[in-house]
């Protein structure tokens, strides 16, 4: 969990940087999301006071955009691309396989907080379809049979 006073300090710095710019809310939320991986409710409440914007306005924006999350992320985020090219190259079978291995469904995290599975739209490298991305690393031309190995690499790293 994030330490309270650090959070306060971070936030005040952020707000200071953006306070005088018009239309700053989304950019501030981006910065918060970059620091914590999600937008904690405490932060939103404080932000509401610092910017003098109703909390409802902040939540309205957070919930509209896919990019902002209200729950803390898992250690590793597995994102399988279902853009058109990947879809045609049968990315659905990759998702099925990952769901089978991790016992989670799309949008869920494993109980140990290790993996979170997301199905995303087009990672922008359709030439490599089907594509999946774990954290920042992109895996292209993934075969169903390779998934176990790829995932277990991340588990081993932890040990």
């Amino acid at each position: 969990m994030v330490k309270k006073d650090k959070l306060q300090a971070d936030l005040e710095g952020l707000v200071k940087k953006w306070k005088d710019k018009k239309g700053n809310l989304i950019m501030i939320l981006h910065s918060i999301e970059n620091i914590y991986g999600y937008v904690p409710r405490d932060t939103s409440i404080k932000l509401s006071r610092l910017l003098d914007v109703p909390l409802a306005r902040i939540y309205e924006v957070i919930t509209f955009y896919n990019y902002f999350k209200l729950e803390p992320p898992a250690k590793h985020n597995v994102a399988v691309c279902m853009g058109t090219a990947c879809y045609l190259k049968n990315a659905a079978s990759l998702i099925e396989e990952i769901e089978k291995i991790l016992h989670i469904k799309e949008g869920q995290s494993t109980k140990d907080g290790m993996f979170h599975l997301d199905v995303v739209r087009c990672l922008g490298c359709c030439g490599l379809a089907p594509v999946m991305m774990i954290d920042e690393k992109v895996y292209g031309k993934v075969k169903k049979s390779e998934i176990v190995d790829i995932l277990s690499k991340y588990v081993k790293e932890e040990e």
């Binding site: 710019k21 018009k22 239309g23 989304i26 950019m27 981006h30 924006v61 955009y65 990019y67 739209r121």
Partner: peptide, 26 residues
């Protein structure tokens, strides 16, 4: 200045995009 999108396809539409730069729902 750069303003970031936040994962909403509709923001490619110009009036939504403007709303998004203004810091609102797109």
């Amino acid at each position: 200045e750069i303003r970031l999108g936040a994962g909403a396809f509709v923001c490619g539409e110009e009036t939504s995009l403007i709303a998004s730069i203004e810091g609102k729902r797109g």
